[in-house]
Every structure is written in C-alpha cells, then in structure tokens.
Design a protein around this nucleic acid. Structure first.
Length: 572
DNA sequence: GGCCATAGCGCG
DNA sequence: AAAGCGCGCTATGGCC
C-alpha cells in the first residue's frame, strides 16, 4: 500500500491519496487537518505503508519532529534523479515540479539552489543580517513551484505513476534498479533522521585535545601560543620575520630564497627536504589545520547541546555517495574523534566494511582469483600472495590495486600492476573497459544501475591533440573509478536501508538504537547499553543482506565487523 | 564590501 | 606539462 501525501490548505494539514504499486488510485482521498497532519496520518496507518512524497528533505523533518517515524517512502526527487541518469539525462532538474513539466511538456523549472550551510545551529556565524527567525531551525530552500492552477496531489499521483512505469523500463536494463531507488528513498529518510539525532560531541574532551596540541585558546580567534611559536620559528629559520606561514606563495618564495627548490609547499613534497625550517613548517601546517578546520570556532558554529548536527546529502556525489553540508561532517579528523562519546547509559557501535571497493570489483568482474581472495580478512595481503608471490608485499599490492581502480600506476606501481593483470585479468579488464568507455565520452553504470553522466556535447572541441588526450584520459579515470565507487555506494545504501529498519525494531523509543553517523563504508550507532549486542547483530545482518542483495551469487565476502565502544576514537 | 580561483589537507 | 578517484572546507590573493 502506498499513500501519496501533499501539504493541505491549512497550516500543518495534509491531503492523502492511496495508490497501488503501479500508482493507480486505490481508495478515497482524504484531508487531514493540522497541525502535524502527516505525523498523525503516519501514526495511524499500517507500518508497511510506503509514503509517496515530493522530497523527504522538505517534508520529513517536521514529521520526525512531531514524533512520527516513517518506515518506507518513495522520494520523487531522488527517484527522478536516478531515472534521468538511466536515460542519459544526468543532472536535469529533479523536483516534482520539474518531473511534472517534463511529463506535460511545460517549461522545466530549475532546482532551487541549496541554502549555504554557513548558518550553523544558532546561526549568524559572521554577524550578518539574517533575521533571528531563520536562525532557530534548518530552513530548507523552497521547492520549485508547480504551475498555477494545478492540484499538487493530482500532480504527485501522476508523476509517481509515471515514475513507476519508468522504473519498470529501467529494470529491463538494470535488474537492480528497483532496489536502487528503494535504497535511495530509504537513504533520504536516514539522512533526515541522522541530522535530527546528531553525533554526540563532548566539548570538554574536544578542548583537551585542542589545548594539548595548540595550547590554550587565544582571544579573538588569534593563533594559540604553540601555533604562534611555530610560526615565529619558521619565519626565523627562513630569514623572513614577516613571513605568513598560511600563505603558500609567501612560503614558497621564502623556501626558494633559502635554497630549497620545491615546486609547491605540499606536505608530500616537503617531507624529505633537508632544511631546518621544514620540520617546524610541517608541524605548523598540521596544527594550523586542526585549529582552523576543527578548532574552537568550528565547535561554536556546529556543536549545540552536546551534538554535532551536520546536514547529510544522500546521493550528493556523482557516484551516489553521500555528501554533507556544513561542518565538514565526512572529514572529521581522527585526532578529534575522542570527543565523540556516547551519552551516559549508551554505547557506540562502530562498524566499517573493510576494503569495500576491491571486494566490489571482485564481484563486478566475477574474476575467479579475486573472488577467492575476498575470503581472506585482509584482501591486500591475500592479493600480495596471489599476484606477487610474497606475503611481505602487502603495501605494494595495495598501491597497485588502488592504482588500477583510480587510473594511476604509471610509475613505480607499474610492475605490480602488470602482475595483477596477469593474475586477475577479468578484474583489470573490467576497469580498462570502463576507462575506454569514459575516454570515448560514454557513460557507465553501477551494479544496481546508477549511471554516470555522459560527456557534454563537444567536450573535446577546440582542444589541441595534447589537451584533448589529457581530457579524455581524465574522463577515463573518472569512469574507471565510477564503476567501483558507485557500486560500493549501492552496497552502502542498501546497508543503511536495512539497518535503519532493524534498529527501529530493537527498542521501544526512537533513540534506543539509532544511526548517528555514516561515512561511505562505515556506520556509527548510538544505542542503549542493554541493546549493544542486539545492535551488533543488526549491523552484521544488514551487511550480509546488502551483500546478498547487491552482489548476489558472486561468492564475494564483505566483512563488516562491529565494535562496541564508548568513544569513536577507540575504533575508527 | 563581495566574488572567484587557487593551494592545501582532512576524510573515504 | 603532467596528471590515481570522489568530496568539503579554510585562508589567501587578485579582482571589481
């Protein structure tokens, strides 16, 4: 049973239209008065209803805030994005209004620009003129408007039915497409729930890390003592008292004057340079990074009431990975993960799928040797043994395999790469075929049917042979990586979908066991202590299910091991 | 004052 | 000229 839902005329009211799986009307429409009409409707409906709405990001936060959890939805916007990609129209507007316009031949409205995330919780980071009214809560930008005179519920019912037809058509090309769109919709729910839950963040422990590394906080956001001392030391050792170590051109000039001939100030290049200033400079850069990216100012902007609440954007990356807005949620450095500690009476369950991408490659290519190698817990070590004949060549094998998936390997990785090609020909051929497709401007698909963008028309026009070749090879590296990264994202999306369902069944209250963080191939749950073992079981089961559904019949193993910890730093 | 590109580095 | 994939974010510096 599916129910299409749109906002009603009164504040917080809603209009509902039951439909069947094909999208045909399946009962009388109903108006529900506000406030919180959708939450009320969700509570009284059977739990297996799939709620059909324009965009979970717009609608679900208020439903959740009103205390109702949606088990399943059909998110028109996320579904539309996948459907457009499947027919080579990647990146066209995905809103309900845009889908309706395409269906009826009207002008297609552009998707609204997402609001800048700079306005943190409590907002007004730069003392700007934003009205306090807008500071209190996340304000999703308004959805694209429907043409005047159209009934939103009619539009939703029609677009949903059309999407179901198009999903069926896409399934003929990619049998996994139904699973893909279901997982995308579930991810949209999970993202809203995770933003609402937030990641527990202990200010006192964060402070301890910062003070230990930087010294006490300086007033007015200036350099803390240790950072200032390092800056002065670098300036002295490079003989330029006015040197700004935050300015790469400045530092590069000073280094050259000191006889250090480097082409950049990147850590990688500076490491191994023999000059007394280099050590302090690298130390300065590391600490400065901590200070600017995840220091006190970051915490004041992004952590409220002991929780870090970023905004997640499922499918925000071309490959289908999640992106995030605000606070750099997917780049929390290991150095500060000790601040992530479960609330009293609760524990964290941290689980990551080790070496996910090469395992996915094994499944995609059905390369017998590589599939067999996935039985090992440490895939890279196993590959080293099988392809290079040496157990001590793990690091070499890892670099070679990553090079194969990223498109590198021209340099020192070349011999090991050749060995991989001999030993795992099908796996390497799959990657090279994807690269050729990309170099020719074509698109490739993930295992469930997520499609990469095609090249823009005339993408090589006006370029000389050198530049055109370079552009084509860059595109080949993108598609080469896409097949693996996007299929891994498929797996992870199905993991999240299965996991949130299982977690909901564990406790009596929504916060008994919940997802609080997700990062490509890793999840963090926060659960009541008594539910720790059950939560470990849930995540393990969800991982097995993801492998069974996304990589069926391949025999590939994807270990997903969960640790019960107090602090994220204990395993990460 | 704002806008934009670049360099650099954190994460996977 | 050479280039291993995908991101978000900060500070700098050139520009209007």
């Amino acid at each position: 049973m599916r129910i299409c839902v749109v906002a009603g005329p009164g504040p917080g009211s809603a209009r509902l239209a039951p439909v069947d799986d094909a999208g045909a009307p399946a009962g009388p429409r109903r108006d529900v008065p506000g406030p919180d009409a959708i939450a009320a409707a969700v509570r009284e409906a059977p739990p297996d209803v799939r709620w059909v709405w324009a965009d979970a990001t717009q609608t679900y936060p208020a439903v959740l805030a009103a205390g109702a959890r949606v088990e399943r939805c059909h998110d028109v916007a996320h579904t539309e994005a996948q459907l457009l990609g499947a027919v080579g129209r990647w990146g066209e507007p995905r809103s309900l209004a845009a889908a309706w316009a395409r269906l009826t031949g009207g002008p297609v409205p552009p998707d609204p620009e997402p609001l800048p995330a700079a306005l943190g919780p409590g907002g007004d980071a730069d003392g700007g003129v934003q009205d306090a009214l807008f500071d209190a809560v996340d304000v999703p930008s308004a959805p694209a408007a429907l043409p005047p005179g159209t009934d939103p519920l009619d539009v939703l019912v029609a677009v949903h039915a059309d999407q179901q037809r198009r999903v069926a058509a896409a399934r003929a090309v990619s049998p996994g497409f139904t699973l893909l769109v279901a997982a995308e919709s579930a991810s949209a729910l999970a993202a809203v729930e995770m933003s609402a839950a937030g990641l527990p963040w202990r200010a006192d422990l964060h402070d301890a890390v910062l003070v230990e590394a930087l010294g006490p906080r300086a007033p007015h956001g200036g350099r803390p003592p240790r950072l200032q001392a390092l800056a002065e030391e670098v300036a002295r050792l490079l003989g330029d008292p006015r040197l700004n170590p935050d300015s790469p051109p400045d530092v590069l000039r000073a280094l050259r004057r000191a006889g250090v001939l480097v082409s950049s100030t990147r850590r990688h290049e500076l490491r191994g340079v023999d000059h007394p200033a280099v050590g302090p400079l690298l130390q300065y850069k590391e600490l400065s990074r901590l200070h600017t990216a995840n220091g006190w100012a970051w915490r004041e902007q992004w952590v409220r009431d002991g929780r870090f609440r970023p905004e997640y954007v499922p499918g925000g990356v071309v490959s289908g990975r999640w992106a995030s807005r605000g606070g750099g949620a997917l780049q929390i450095p290991k150095a500060v993960r000790g601040a992530v500690v479960a609330d009293p009476g609760r524990v964290l369950v941290v689980a990551d799928a080790g070496q996910l991408e090469p395992r996915v490659l094994a499944a995609l290519s059905a390369d017998p040797g590589m599939v067999a190698a996935t039985q090992a817990g440490d895939l890279y070590a196993e590959i080293a043994t099988r392809a290079l004949g040496r157990t001590d060549a793990r690091a070499e094998a890892k670099i070679a395999l990553l090079s194969a998936m990223y498109g590198g390997g021209a340099g020192s990785a070349a011999p090991a790469l050749a060995a991989l090609r001999r030993r795992f020909p099908a796996a390497l051929e799959l990657l090279e075929e994807a690269a050729r497709t990309g170099e020719d401007g074509g698109s490739v698909r993930s295992v469930l049917g997520r499609t990469s963008p095609v090249a823009a028309p005339g993408w090589l026009d006006g370029l000389g042979p050198e530049a055109a070749g370079g552009r084509a090879r860059a595109r080949g590296r993108f598609t080469r990586n896409f097949v693996v990264q996007a299929s891994a994202a498929d797996w992870a999306g199905v993991l999240v979908a299965g996991l949130r369902t299982r977690l909901a069944a564990l406790g009596d209250r929504p916060d008994d066991a919940r997802l609080v963080f997700f990062q490509h191939d890793e999840v963090v749950l926060e659960v009541r202590e008594a539910l720790a073992a059950a939560a470990v079981g849930a995540v393990t089961d969800a991982g097995s299910e993801a492998t069974r559904l996304v990589l069926p019949g391949t025999g590939v193993r994807v270990p997903l091991e969960a640790a019960v910890v107090r602090s994220y730093a204990e395993k990460g």
